[in-house]
Amino acid sequence: MRDADTPPQEPTNDRPHPAALTPQRRADLIRAAAAEVRDRVQTWRDNPNWRNTPANSHRYETTIGAIDALGQLPDPDTEEAAASLADAVRPVIVEWRPSRPGPEQAIYAAVERLRQAIDAST
């Protein structure tokens, strides 16, 4: 049984076709998904059960750093500029795997939505 935040295992076809998206719409999808990831990661970090291990600190810093870098990029007006937004947050995709329990599973679900936003935009 999966919780509400666990993404489905089968791919869905409800994503917009990349050719139908403007660079600005692609940016909006990526930024919204990244904001959700940031909120969930910060909630995990602020939790009293947070363990300040090197691995946890690395994942936290990588995630926050990538999303902060995304926030510094201007709104895109070309396909190449939209791709640079996706490149800024790709390190976040690498850091989170579905095997982690509890709050980390909720983060993974949000990261999966970010991955789907990136896939929809490329």
Rank of each mutant, 00 (worst) to 15 (best):
I93W: 00
L70A: 05
P103E: 14
E112W: 09
I67Q: 03
P18Y: 15
A88I: 15
R97V: 12
A34E: 11
T22M: 06
A86C: 10
D39T: 06
S57H: 08
A117V: 08
Q105E: 14
A69P: 01
T22S: 13
P76Y: 00
R51G: 06
G71T: 03
R26W: 01
R25C: 02
R38E: 15
H58A: 15
Y108F: 15
L21I: 00
D77A: 07
A20T: 08
A34M: 07
R113P: 03
A120C: 05
I64Q: 04
P54C: 13
R45P: 02
R38L: 15
I64N: 00
D46Y: 05
A19R: 09
T43G: 10
P8C: 11
Y108W: 14
I30W: 09
A33H: 04
I93F: 04
A82H: 00
E10K: 04
A35Q: 11
H58S: 12
Q72T: 04
D28F: 08
P101T: 04
P7Y: 06
D75E: 13
P7H: 09
A66Q: 00
L29A: 14
D14A: 13
R45D: 11
H17I: 09
A69F: 02
A33E: 04
L73E: 06
N13P: 02
D46C: 01
P7W: 07
T53D: 13
A83T: 01
I64W: 04
R51M: 14
P74W: 04
Y60F: 15
P98R: 13
W50Q: 01
Q116E: 12
D5W: 11
P103R: 08
W44A: 09
A86F: 04
R45C: 02
G65M: 07
G102R: 06
E80A: 12
E80K: 03
Q24S: 13
R113Y: 05
E95I: 09
E36R: 07
E95M: 15
L70D: 10
W44G: 08
A20G: 08
N13W: 14
D119H: 09
L73D: 04
T62E: 14
D46W: 05
L70V: 14
L29G: 14
D46M: 12
T43H: 09
N52D: 15
A117R: 06
H17C: 08
L114K: 04
D119I: 04
R90I: 00
T63M: 02
D77I: 14
V94E: 15
I118R: 06
R25L: 01
G65Y: 03
E36V: 02
Q42K: 08
G102D: 11
Q116K: 04
A83P: 00
I64H: 00
D87N: 05
P76C: 04
H58P: 03
A120D: 12
P91K: 02
N56V: 07
P23N: 08
R31Y: 02
P48N: 05
A34K: 02
L85V: 00
D77M: 10
I30Y: 06
G71A: 07
P103M: 15
A35C: 02
L114N: 06
R25I: 03
L29H: 11
L73V: 05
A81M: 03
R90A: 11
A55W: 09
P11A: 15
A4R: 02
E10P: 00
A82R: 01
T22G: 06
S84C: 01
Y60H: 14
E79H: 09
H58T: 13
P7Q: 11
